[in-house]
């Protein structure tokens, strides 16, 4: 969550609760509602690393609140994160390892593994279909996330088919 908070602070200084609200507003249902405690712990670490700094702002009838702002070092870290290409999909996943190793053990054959995994992926796809139909058209960020997940699943299924062809 470190870099997500840095990005929000690059827009404007904010206190912890404002960051929680900003995450919720920006992502809609695409991001699980962040835990306020986790936000404060993360801010504390960012402060220790010199990426953000905090100032106390006095409030009438309430304890002071800490408003955080980005340091020059924090901005550098954020820029590096944004500028770097993001790692591509990792296809040597758990299933790939099973597919390679299971036939050696005799526990399962590849055809059975592929068939089971295909039905599992379709079950997830079905969940995503439901999710998409339940998501408000105005929740654009969430819709993009769901559509992205669907396209990844389609690729995974195409790849399963490719694995199956290899059994011929």
């Amino acid at each position: 969550m470190r870099l997500h908070l840095l990005a929000l602070l690059a827009k404007e200084p904010a206190h912890g609760y404002e960051l929680k609200q900003a995450l919720e507003q920006t992502f809609g249902s695409a991001y699980p509602s962040p835990n306020i405690g986790q936000i404060y712990v993360t801010l504390g670490r960012l402060e220790k690393d010199g990426l953000v700094r905090a100032v106390d702002v006095e409030q009438s009838n309430r304890p002071n609140k800490k408003v955080y702002y980005l340091t020059a070092k924090g901005r550098d870290v954020l820029t590096t994160w944004v500028d770097e290409p993001t790692e591509g999909p990792r296809v040597r996943d758990e299933f790939f390892m099973k597919l390679v190793l299971a036939p050696l053990t005799g526990i399962a054959d590849r055809m059975a593994l592929i068939n089971r995994q295909r039905r599992h992926y379709l079950g997830i796809m079905s969940d995503l279909n439901d999710l998409l139909s339940r998501t408000a058209p105005t929740d654009r960020v969430a819709i993009l996330l769901i559509e992205g997940a669907m396209l990844h699943l389609q690729a995974d299924l195409d790849w399963l088919e490719r694995c199956q062809e290899d059994l011929a």
Partner: peptide
């Protein structure tokens, strides 16, 4: 079919 929840929880 298994999961329900918001996009952020499911994905």
């Amino acid at each position: 079919r298994r999961r329900t929840g918001t996009a952020g929880e499911v994905i």
